[in-house]
Computed example of a mutant assay.
Amino acid sequence: RAHGESYDVSRVIDMLNLVHLTDGERILQSYPFQLSGGMQQRLAIALSLILKPGIVFADEPTSALDMLVQASVLDLMKEVTQALGATVIIVTHNIKAAARIANSIGVMNKGQLVEVGSTEEVMAHPKDEYTRILLDSVMKVV
């Protein structure tokens, strides 16, 4: 049960399929250590979206994943949230990862918002020195 709603296994399986986890029955019977990091992340995405929220906050959604899995998780987040019509707010230190799926980017430095703009504008023409430092410091996401 969540938020007063009892869960329907078929609805959970449908959501797992939406995040490309096709063996839903087995996954629901698995312990976390029996799933790969990428599977765990996709499962977390599915569970966070099961109630179809309008806004999803993702705090460092790719921090413990390798570069290839990071890219697939970001692409999946974009695909699934668009399909559900949800807005995603990603908190990350990796500006290039955010740029992979963001329409707009806000850059904070020491708790202050130092730059906001469309993804294309911020990535191509950063106005703030801290944004330029961020862009220079991160590895390219595949």
Results as ranks from 00 to 15, higher is better:
M108Y: 02
G106F: 00
A2N: 12
V56L: 15
I55W: 02
K96M: 04
Q34E: 15
L84T: 09
S36Y: 14
L65A: 06
I13M: 09
R100Y: 01
V19M: 11
V141D: 09
E115V: 09
M15I: 07
S118P: 02
L35N: 08
E60Q: 10
F57E: 07
L16H: 04
N109F: 00
D14V: 08
M39S: 15
K110G: 04
V141P: 03
H20M: 04
D66H: 08
P32Q: 03
L74S: 02
L43M: 15
N109G: 04
V114S: 01
L43A: 09
E60G: 13
A2C: 03
I105C: 03
Q40E: 09
H20E: 13
V114P: 09
D59F: 07
T81H: 12
A64C: 10
V56E: 13
T22R: 03
E79F: 07
Y31K: 09
I50G: 02
L134Y: 03
S63D: 08
V9D: 13
L74R: 03
L51A: 09
I101R: 01
K110Q: 12
N17L: 11
K78A: 11
A98L: 14
V12C: 04
M67F: 14
S36F: 06
P32A: 01
R11D: 13
A97L: 08
V122F: 06
V80Q: 12
V80H: 06
A102Q: 02
Q82V: 06
V19E: 03
